[in-house]
């Protein structure tokens, strides 16, 4: 469904994404992990059209979408959420979600019905009239998810929807993400909460210094020496196996 090939993005002299490639199959949940500063969010933003890539290609559903602006990608069914939540703070929860729903309908009551339905699915059903600015961190993460879902996406790019949440809240979001996939939405997620990645993703890519250094099933990836070194430093893998 999504093919990323040798994607490059630099800021000044810094190569934030340096030839990253990955594939997401229809109906999958794919994880993207990596240490802080690895370039995950930049890779996401470049795939989703927020940055113009300096090189490489992105194909979505078999069509070249490299460098298309975000609103056109969203129309085609690819939508991202933001790691730092970006609510329309002075609008109510339902108004926030309706902005997403309006992508597929111009009719107010239809948008409202769709938004209400999405709000229920992410557990915001009882907070519809609250100003988005009043939501807790967990509430805002749900709102990010809801707005994106309301655009009726085929591919959802989730950027750390679980960061900053307590374990109970993480479990709740994991369930919601599973339910979204069950409805036929393909998911690519950046996540730091390993518990979530391990239990959700079937396939995981590891990004370090703007390159994909490993990919595979989550369990296998966690014991990959290259991955351990990326997180813990050179030689860490050897020391760990020596201790074991």
């Amino acid at each position: 469904m999504l093919e990323v090939r040798d994607l490059m993005k630099s800021f000044g002299g810094l190569k934030a994404v340096d030839g990253a490639s990955l594939d997401v199959d229809q109906g999958a949940i794919v994880g993207l992990i990596g240490p802080n500063g690895a370039g995950k969010t930049t890779l996401f933003a470049t795939i989703a059209g927020f940055h113009k890539p300096d090189g490489g290609r992105v194909r979505f559903e078999g069509k070249d979408t490299t460098g298309l602006p975000p609103h056109l990608l969203c129309e085609r069914g690819m939508v991202r959420t933001f790691q730092i939540t970006q609510p329309f703070a002075r609008l109510s929860v339902i108004e926030n979600i309706m902005v997403g729903a309006y992508l597929r309908t111009a009719d107010r009551s239809e948008a409202s019905a769709r938004a209400t339905d999405v709000a229920r699915r992410v557990g915001l059903g009882d907070r519809l009239e609250a100003p988005a600015g009043d939501l807790t961190v967990a509430g805002r993460k749900r709102l990010e998810l809801a707005r994106a879902l309301a655009t009726a996406p085929k591919l959802l790019l989730l950027d750390e929807v679980m960061a900053g949440l307590n374990p109970t809240e993480v479990t709740a979001i994991v369930e919601i993400v599973r339910a979204i996939r069950a409805d036929g939405v393909t998911i690519l997620l950046i996540e730091h909460v390993m518990q979530a990645v391990m239990s959700l993703a079937e396939h995981v890519y590891v990004l370090n210094d703007g390159r994909i250094i490993a990919d595979g099933a989550p369990r296998a990836i966690a014991s990959e020496p290259k991955v351990i070194e990326a997180y813990l430093g050179r030689g860490a893998a050897e020391r760990m196996s020596a201790h074991a």
Binding site: P69, C74, P87
Partner: peptide, 19 residues
């Protein structure tokens, strides 16, 4: 609704398919 979204947060508006 789109104008309000743009007023509140242009990046988020863009991400949700607004030109």
């Amino acid at each position: 609704a789109r104008l309000a979204a743009i007023r509140e947060n242009e990046d988020a508006a863009m991400a949700l398919g607004i030109d």
